[in-house]
Every structure is written in structure tokens, then in C-alpha cells.
Simulated scan of single mutants.
Amino acid sequence: MKKSVMVLAVLVGLGSTAFAAEDGAALYKKCSVCHGMQGEKAALGKSKIIKDMSSAEIITALKGYKDGSYGGVSKGLMKGQVASLNDAQITAIAAHISK
């Protein structure tokens, strides 16, 4: 019984690390260079002001940039920026921006 409890405790500990919430603020830092610290800038003078977008709109845009189905003049640039992001990271960034 003790062994089962110990194994369960280890698995729960591993699971909580694997499912730890992504830090949207930390992930957003590379975005802030073009979009501003609060998402207040039109990136390269061409993009939407992202602080005015809803979380759902941001998620749609980032996933669309990632799969190539979204974007205008900055589509190619943004595809490279979001290529390494997973769904949890995209959601965390969207939550951070749309506060």
C-alpha cells in the first residue's frame, strides 16, 4: 500500500509539472519588440493594435499564422515567430494580451 501511494505521489508530481500554466507575460516579451509592452503598437506600422483584440481573436490569429491560413503583409514574418508555440503557449499569450 505504501509503495502504491508513493508511486501515485510521484506521478501526480510529474503531472503537475507537465501541466503547469504557461507564463503569458514571459512568452510575450519577444512580441513586445514590435507590438509594444502592452500590445499598443501597430507592429512595423502595419498590424492591428493587438491589445484591442479579444482572447479568441488573438488565438485565431496566432493559430492561423502558424498554419498559414491567416495574415496579410506580415504573414511570413509571423509564421516564423509562432512556429514553435504550442496551443497552451498561444492561449497564455492571448490571455496576457487581452487582460
Rank of each mutant, 00 (worst) to 15 (best):
L77Q: 10
K63M: 04
A92D: 05
Y28I: 02
K46I: 14
H96G: 08
F19I: 13
K51W: 14
K41N: 13
S84D: 06
I97P: 08
G68A: 09
I90P: 00
E40G: 11
G64C: 10
S84A: 13
K29E: 06
D23R: 00
H96F: 15
E40R: 00
G68H: 01
N86L: 00
G76L: 07
A95N: 09
G13E: 09
G36W: 05
D52A: 12
T91Y: 15
A56V: 13
V73I: 13
Q38S: 12
G71E: 00
K29Q: 12
V33Y: 13
A21Q: 15
A18G: 05
L77V: 10
T91A: 15
N86K: 03
G71S: 02
Y65A: 05
I90T: 09
I58N: 03
A61Q: 15
V82H: 11
T60G: 11
S69G: 15
H35D: 14
G45E: 10
S98P: 11
K29S: 03
K29F: 04
T60C: 13
T17C: 10
G71P: 02
S16G: 01
D52K: 14
I50K: 00
H96R: 12
S16E: 02
Y28C: 02
T60K: 15
G68W: 06
Y28H: 03
K66R: 13
D52M: 11
H96M: 07
M37Y: 10
K46T: 11
L85F: 06
V82C: 08
K79S: 14
A20R: 06
V12T: 00
A25V: 06
K41A: 12
D52Y: 13
A9D: 05
K51N: 12
K51S: 15
C34S: 01
A88G: 06
Q89T: 13
L27G: 03
H96S: 08
A92Q: 03
A43D: 11
S55K: 15
L62I: 14
Y70I: 09
D23N: 04
A56H: 11
G15V: 03
A21N: 11
I58A: 07
I93N: 02
E22D: 14
L77I: 10
A43F: 08
A95M: 14
S54M: 12
K30C: 02
I90S: 12
A9I: 12
G36Q: 06
L44A: 06
V73T: 13
L85A: 07
K30D: 01
K48S: 15
L44F: 09
Q89E: 15
G72T: 04
G76A: 09
Q38W: 12
S98E: 03
K63P: 14
S55N: 09
Y70L: 05
A25L: 11
A43M: 05
C34P: 07
A92V: 14
S16R: 01
G72F: 03
M53D: 06
Y28K: 08
T91G: 09
G76T: 11
S74R: 06
S54A: 12
D87V: 04
L14F: 09
S69E: 01
E22K: 07
G71H: 00
D52L: 13
A26K: 10
S47M: 08
C34Y: 12
A61P: 02
I93D: 02
V10A: 01
K51A: 13
Q89H: 00
Y65E: 03
G13Y: 07
Q81E: 08
I50S: 04
K46P: 08
A61S: 15
D67M: 05
G72Q: 05
E22V: 03
V10Q: 03
K63H: 11
Q89Y: 09
I49A: 07
V12Q: 01
G36T: 09
